[in-house]
Computed example of a mutant assay.
Amino acid sequence: MNLHAAALAEAPRSDETTPAFASDAIAGLTRQPKQLSPKYFYDAAGSELFEQITRLPEYYPTRAELGILRAHAAEIAAILPQHAALVEFGAGAATKARLLLGASEFAAYVPVDISGDFLNAQARGLRKDFPHLQIYPVTADFTTPFVLPDRIRTMPKVGFFPGSTLGNFEPHEACRFLRGARDILGEGAYMLIGVDLEKDERMLYDAYNDAAGVTARFNLNMLVRINRELGGNFDLSAFTHRAIYNRERHRIEMHLISKRPQTVRLQGRSISFRSGESIHTESSYKYSLDRFSALAKGSGWTPTASWTDPDAMFSVHALRS
Score class of each variant (00 low, 15 high):
residue 1 M to R: 00
residue 1 M to F: 10
residue 8 L to I: 04
residue 9 A to W: 11
residue 9 A to G: 01
residue 9 A to Q: 14
residue 9 A to H: 14
residue 10 E to T: 12
residue 10 E to M: 13
residue 11 A to T: 13
residue 15 D to G: 13
residue 19 P to D: 10
residue 21 F to W: 04
residue 23 S to I: 02
residue 28 G to S: 14
residue 29 L to D: 13
residue 31 R to Q: 15
residue 34 K to S: 11
residue 35 Q to W: 11
residue 37 S to R: 13
residue 40 Y to W: 15
residue 41 F to L: 05
residue 42 Y to L: 03
residue 44 A to D: 03
residue 45 A to K: 15
residue 46 G to W: 02
residue 49 L to S: 08
residue 52 Q to G: 06
residue 56 L to E: 12
residue 58 E to P: 00
residue 58 E to N: 05
residue 63 R to M: 02
residue 65 E to L: 09
residue 70 R to A: 10
residue 71 A to S: 11
residue 76 I to K: 08
residue 78 A to H: 07
residue 79 I to H: 10
residue 82 Q to M: 03
residue 84 A to E: 06
residue 87 V to K: 02
residue 89 F to A: 11
residue 92 G to I: 07
residue 100 L to W: 08
residue 101 L to V: 04
residue 102 G to T: 04
residue 110 V to I: 14
residue 116 G to R: 12
residue 117 D to W: 03
residue 118 F to W: 02
residue 121 A to H: 10
residue 121 A to N: 08
residue 121 A to I: 03
residue 125 G to K: 12
residue 128 K to V: 14
residue 128 K to M: 12
residue 129 D to G: 00
residue 129 D to Y: 04
residue 129 D to M: 07
residue 131 P to Y: 08
residue 137 P to V: 06
residue 138 V to R: 05
residue 140 A to M: 00
residue 140 A to V: 02
residue 144 T to F: 05
residue 152 I to L: 10
residue 158 V to R: 03
residue 161 F to G: 00
residue 163 G to K: 02
residue 163 G to T: 01
residue 164 S to D: 01
residue 166 L to K: 10
residue 167 G to Y: 11
residue 167 G to I: 03
residue 170 E to S: 09
residue 171 P to R: 03
residue 172 H to V: 14
residue 172 H to P: 00
residue 172 H to S: 13
residue 172 H to D: 15
residue 180 G to M: 15
residue 183 D to I: 05
residue 185 L to F: 04
residue 187 E to F: 00
residue 189 A to R: 01
residue 194 G to N: 09
residue 197 L to P: 03
residue 198 E to F: 01
residue 198 E to K: 10
residue 202 R to H: 07
residue 208 Y to M: 05
residue 213 G to F: 13
residue 213 G to P: 11
residue 215 T to F: 02
residue 216 A to G: 13
residue 217 R to P: 03
residue 218 F to Q: 12
residue 219 N to R: 02
residue 222 M to K: 01
residue 227 N to M: 04
residue 231 G to R: 08
residue 236 L to Q: 06
residue 237 S to F: 03
residue 239 F to L: 10
residue 244 I to K: 11
residue 245 Y to T: 09
residue 248 E to Y: 08
residue 248 E to C: 03
residue 253 E to D: 15
residue 253 E to T: 08
residue 255 H to W: 13
residue 257 I to A: 06
residue 258 S to R: 00
residue 259 K to G: 15
residue 261 P to I: 07
residue 268 G to A: 12
residue 269 R to N: 14
residue 273 F to I: 02
residue 275 S to E: 15
residue 276 G to Y: 04
residue 276 G to F: 01
residue 277 E to Y: 05
residue 278 S to L: 06
residue 278 S to F: 00
residue 289 L to W: 07
residue 289 L to E: 13
residue 291 R to I: 08
residue 291 R to G: 09
residue 295 L to H: 14
residue 297 K to D: 05
residue 298 G to E: 12
residue 299 S to Y: 01
residue 300 G to M: 06
residue 303 P to C: 13
residue 304 T to F: 05
residue 305 A to D: 11
residue 308 T to D: 11
residue 308 T to Y: 11
residue 310 P to N: 09
residue 312 A to H: 13
residue 313 M to R: 11
residue 316 V to K: 01
residue 320 R to S: 12
residue 321 S to K: 07
